[in-house]
Simulated assay, not measured.
Amino acid sequence: MYLYNISIIVENERHESLIQWVRENWLSTLPEGVKLLKMLDSPHEGQTYCVQLMFEYPSDIPNFQKEKLILLQEYIAENHLEKAFLFDSTMKYL
């Protein structure tokens, strides 16, 4: 089993509108079981959120990135350019 994590780092003045869009428009399009978390002690300026999903096979992740992650990336580029960014990581359960 694999945990796919998307970290979203956003400036303080933009975080409410970005997370509202994520909740209202993007999360509902994702697979069941998706988790949205807020990092409490982030080492970054602004606010940090994480979206976590589980995948049975690592080969499923590139499809998710092409079909779903791209929507978030496009929204950030169009509405929060240079005010928010994201990075992703994949972890394997042992």
Rank of each mutant, 00 (worst) to 15 (best):
H44T: 04
L27S: 02
T48E: 10
C50L: 11
M54W: 05
K38I: 05
L30C: 04
K68I: 03
G46C: 06
V51F: 00
L69A: 06
L40I: 11
N25D: 14
D41H: 14
V34I: 04
S28W: 00
F64S: 00
L30R: 00
E67R: 12
K68G: 04
D41A: 15
H44C: 10
L30P: 03
K35H: 14
L36E: 01
L37S: 15
Q65A: 05
S59N: 12
T29C: 06
N25R: 11
L37F: 12
N25K: 09
E56L: 15
P62N: 12
P62S: 13
M39Y: 08
S28T: 01
I61S: 03
S59T: 14
L40F: 12
Y57Q: 15
V51M: 00
N25H: 12
V51E: 01
D41I: 03
Q65K: 15
V51G: 03
P43M: 07
L40N: 13
S59Q: 12
Q52W: 07
C50T: 07
Y49N: 07
Y49G: 10
Q52T: 10
P58W: 02
P62T: 13
K66P: 05
L37R: 13
M54N: 08
P58T: 03
Y57R: 07
I61M: 09
I61V: 14
L69T: 05
K38C: 12
L69F: 09
L36D: 04
C50Q: 08
M39S: 13
K38Y: 05
L30H: 01
K66T: 14
L37P: 11
P43T: 09
E24H: 07
L53I: 08
E67L: 15
L27M: 09
G46F: 03
Q47P: 00
Q52N: 11
S42G: 05
L69Y: 13
K35R: 15
F64H: 07
L53E: 10
H44R: 11
S28Y: 02
S28D: 02
P31E: 06
P43S: 15
L27W: 00
P62E: 15
D41L: 08
P43Y: 06
K38Q: 11
P43D: 09
L27V: 02
L36N: 00
D41C: 09
V51P: 01
K35N: 15
T48H: 07
K38G: 06
D41Y: 04
Q47C: 10
M54G: 03
